[in-house]
């Protein structure tokens, strides 16, 4: 019996608009994420995927229900849970290496230690030659690799990724997916990955959560039982893909 590292229990999130209306973003969401699992979350846009991730990260609070990390309720960001954002989130006035070392700087580690760790993670994402460059000198894909290195340098147990490859072109995206799997294989973390792309979810995930449209809940949980590296030509791949797309279509139709 695998143990859950993150437990989400009857989670509800309600927003209040400026007119005073209530918007239910997430309703009755239940799910346990197991250690070292790669979980992908797909769902129609506006279904609360990002909100869910922000709550797990401790950036937003739940309206009711319970989200816990190793049995402890999550109420503020912690170093054990890292996050990579869709938008480029590197500090533009800092060099690449200082960006990667940022979490260690907040943790008040010595400069020497910071640089050592940062270099090793830059090597992991293949960007050690760009240590002294600035983010604006890097392509979008490279910037996201730096963002991943920065999150990993903190040595979190869980890595949350909010459509990290959403802004990349198709080719770069596929390369980045491969690279992410390699990194994940090298230092096993639990990854929760939000994406728009069904293909991306099937390529990456052990488990795919399909969310229902707003208010977002778990519509279906699908285990992807294919060995990696996955072959997009595999018939199971196509079957899963059309199965999930069908569910999403239903949800979009329901939302109308």
């Amino acid at each position: 019996m695998p143990e859950p590292i993150i437990t989400i229990n009857q989670l509800n999130k309600i927003y209040h608009t400026e007119q005073g209306n209530e918007i239910k973003a997430i309703e009755n969401f239940n799910f346990d994420i197991n250690v070292n699992n790669f979980v992908c979350i797909v769902g129609p846009s506006g279904c609360g995927k990002s909100t869910l991730l922000r709550i797990i990260a401790g950036l937003d609070s739940a309206s009711s229900g319970f989200v816990s990390y190793q049995g402890q309720a999550i109420c503020k960001p912690s170093r054990d849970i890292g996050m990579v954002f869709q938008e480029y989130s590197l500090l533009p006035w800092q060099t690449v290496i200082n960006n990667v070392a940022l979490g260690l700087e907040f943790a008040k580690q010595s400069k020497q230690k910071r640089m050592e760790v940062a270099v090793s993670y830059l090597k992991m994402v293949g960007l050690e030659d760009y240590a002294r460059a600035y983010p604006f000198e890097l392509s979008g894909g490279m910037q996201q690799r730096v963002a991943i290195a920065r999150a990993l340098a903190n040595n979190p147990q869980v890595l949350l990724m909010d459509e990290p490859f959403g802004a990349l072109d198709a080719h770069t995206r596929i390369l980045m997916q491969k690279e992410l799997l390699t990194i994940w294989g090298e230092n096993m973390k639990t990854i929760v990955f939000v994406t728009h792309s069904v293909d991306e979810a099937i390529y990456l995930a052990d488990t795919v959560i399909v969310m229902s449209s707003r208010p977002g809940g778990v519509k279906e949980v699908i285990n992807v039982n294919m060995s990696r590296p996955r072959d997009r030509a595999n018939p199971i791949y196509g079957q899963l893909s059309s199965q999930i797309l069908l569910m999403l279509e239903e949800e979009v139709a329901k939302a109308k």
């Binding site: 990260a57 996050m83 954002f85 480029y88 989130s89 907040f106």
Partner: peptide, 10 residues
Amino acid sequence: TLIDSARVLG
């Protein structure tokens, strides 16, 4: 995002 990502980094 800059503030959020810093907070997540501790």
